[in-house]
């Protein structure tokens, strides 16, 4: 550990992160590999069919999706981008003071218009009313 940190101080905090990922991936691969060595392998059609709570599968799982999911997905993407802007703002909040607060409120306010638009248009309702 110390060997890693010496001469590499700028990225020091990321060495544990890297080791964590390496250990996690190795653990998964090794577990699967050992299980493959140990377990008996006797497949038959019933065993290989996908399990759907005991009910026989009705149709192909990879069907086209209902368009309503698309609105939820695109709203998620847009508000995710908004959230990404909130991080540097939160880090700098103490320095920016009232000025920064007003800046961010304008930013969020404009996006809230879109949120209320989606709400009023019924894009967030799952079952259509009326």
């Amino acid at each position: 550990m110390e060997v890693f940190l010496r001469g590499y101080s700028a990225l020091g905090p990321y060495v544990p992160v890297f080791l964590f990922i390496v250990v996690a991936v190795t653990f998964g691969i090794v577990t699967l590999f050992i299980a493959k060595l140990v377990r008996p392998h006797r497949p038959y059609p019933e065993k290989l069919s996908p399990y759907e709570c005991g009910v026989p599968p009705l149709m192909e799982a990879r069907e086209r999706f209902f368009i309503r999911f698309y609105i939820i997905a695109i709203l998620f993407v847009l508000f995710d981008v908004e959230a990404a802007f909130l991080y540097p703002w939160a880090v700098l909040y103490g320095k920016l003071g009232l000025y920064g607060f007003i800046e961010m409120m304008i930013f969020i306010g404009i996006l809230l218009v879109g949120y209320f638009y989606a709400w009023r248009k019924g894009a967030l309702d799952w079952v259509k009313e009326g």
């Binding site: 609105i71 695109i74 304008i106 969020i108 996006l111 879109g114 949120y115 638009y117």
Partner: peptide
């Protein structure tokens, strides 16, 4: 933010 708003309204 205006760009994101436009994308949101367009998608809806």
């Amino acid at each position: 933010s205006v760009l994101l708003l436009a994308a949101m309204i367009g998608a809806i």
